[in-house]
Write a protein that binds this DNA or RNA. Structure first.
Lengths: 201, 201, 201, 201
DNA sequence: TATGAATGAGATTTCATTCAT
DNA sequence: CATGAATGAAATCTCATTCAT
């Protein structure tokens, strides 16, 4: 019981340090100090820096995903549902900036392969989740037929990028603007009168 | 003259190593070996690892941007122009995977602040470039009014994400599929009959 | 009473781990796990790793020595006695490989001085025991006059080395071959016709 | 050229420290200080502590073996040859106590397997060398038929043990006494009148 | 201009030992 | 008596950077 407490304490500190410094620049010393435990305690609870990182990201992403799913328990019409989804993701992404910053910046190499695979697994699960929603939308006739996986990826990519920009400099666009932009692009694209697109093409 | 040759030799090696390993995992030793120069020569030509990194990325991105601009010297109608732009970016992104991979993965902290600013500058320039194209499109009535900067960011985000996915596992989607997906989403969005969107909303 | 049980449990585990890994490579954690007690219990019963090591070796050697002495309660003629002694030592050495391996490999530094002295004391006692047998042999006219201590040391050295070789790779020589070799060298040496040695010399 | 100098400097220091403290107790810091180089230089020249250890032992043993062989370039009669061999080994063993102490004490586990194998290889080579001399002696009729490998092992075992004892406490026996004891045991054994051994048995 | 041996600050990790429960 | 979570000193190893040649 007490052990779990310490683990959470550590994960909290790790989230902050990892998101501020990135994996390689984050020092175990700093995490230990912030968590107010001895360095050895870090290793007593997590067998390595990589594993601590994995746990931090995984726990964070899982919490976010759980919250997203929870916020979607609604019976709204599909498009409202979609907008709600986008809104949820963006808001959570921004409010959990520790995790999302890590997620956006540190998916590169240099981390234990096993750990990287684990983290990417969580991301994949998230993309599948979006993919399924898009598939439902298509089946119900709301969305045009598209390669779901790529579309889901694209949706996540837009959100990633806009939120990262917002976190770096909030003046670039408010949260509402971001949600609106994401929703508009995903639903209707940038073109003015899509009905005329056949002419253009 | 000869010095420039050596610099290019080094930048070539650095591009490969940085893209494969990321900034922190890339070792000066390895770059020196690959460039077939002594380690001291690295420091003779670039004052630090960070500066070498900056030069690598900057040079790479500038080359890509120059190529994109070159490929756009056309008088096609706007939408064809847009599609050509997307196609160019995606193809160059994928063929210059050394640079784009770095760009996507290593924008995190842990790199000299000055260097980071320099790199981000190049990215910003790129986004401005896209932004201007979108602005032109809007002025000519092809695109609906939107916050240009966010739209440009979103466009880059989609491309980033899809190309990164392709580079990691080409089976996820062919280059053509990626171009098509990007174009479709950006132009018309995912919704089946956008005309009916008013009802939904 | 129960405490003694636990101590034996621990000493058993320690013997196995110390002999397999050596003093420095043996971890208290591993001993605790193997002994099926908590790590704290190790320290409750033995004040330090060194002391546990000392106890392990001492107990083991004392048991072996007791057995050797027991097997020698005989009235055989001296040379048979000697051969029996060699046979006993070799067999016990090999069957108690946990202890003998420690004894052969870990007499080096890096262990608490006090502990080292204790262990060396047990060894010395053993050598004195051999020495006394040799002295008796000399007094009874069976053995030529020799520095007893060195001879005893030499005898132990031969046995140590051959048994260690056998434990490492039993194909090098069977137990019987080892006993025979030790006995032959100690009794008559390697020279073919010792009577003629004066000529050679 | 200069690099070799530094390597020798390091190997010298390593020999001293390893022999005094043993592998695990020897600290890279101490070796660096004694060698008057920075710690990094140790790693620049030897990729790990284990490798430095291996190099130290291997170089030392090879030197000793070379010297032994050199001292044996003689045309003495076999038994004198044998005595000369013993004398050489014992004297070198004692004068190169750094190496021999390591060799006697640190063949245990806890060292990189690859390194251990390397060191054991040198030892095996040494034993083969002795074995060949014994074989020659047998072929020429000087020595009785015996399992060569075991005999060689036994010879090395006696020398190891007596020299180790001398190094630990020189009062136990002078170098001459040791040589005499080794020679006597190996040549004629301990028994007073070997001719009568049949009766005893 | 080019080299590469040398450096040393600093990072991760280990593990015997302690002590509150 | 027994436990095991917590500790922190200490060790190995890395690698960007320097500088004499």
């Amino acid at each position: 019981m007490k052990k779990e407490l310490k683990k959470d304490q550590i994960l909290g500190a790790a989230g902050i340090v990892f998101s501020q410094k990135g994996f390689h620049q984050a020092k175990m010393d700093e995490i230990a100090v912030l968590a107010k435990v001895a360095k050895g305690t870090l290793y007593y609870n997590f067998s390595s820096k990589s594993e601590l990182f994995a746990a931090t990201v995984t726990q964070g992403l899982n919490r976010i995903m759980a919250q997203i799913k929870a916020e979607l328990e609604s019976d709204l019409p599909f498009m409202a549902h979609l907008k709600g989804l986008i809104s949820s993701i963006v808001r959570l992404y921004i409010s959990h900036s520790e995790v999302s910053r890590i997620y956006a910046n540190e998916m590169s190499s240099g981390i234990d392969d096993k750990v990287l695979v684990e983290i990417k697994g969580v991301r994949k699960e998230f993309i599948r989740f979006i993919e399924n929603i898009l598939k439902t939308g298509e089946e119900k006739g709301y969305l045009r037929p598209l390669p779901h996986y790529l579309s889901a990826l694209a949706a996540v990519g837009i959100i990633d990028t806009l939120c990262a920009a917002h976190l770096e400099d909030p003046d670039k666009g408010s949260v509402e603007q971001i949600i609106e932009t994401v929703y508009t692009i995903l639903s209707t694209g940038l073109v003015a009168n899509p009905s005329g697109k056949s002419h253009i093409k």
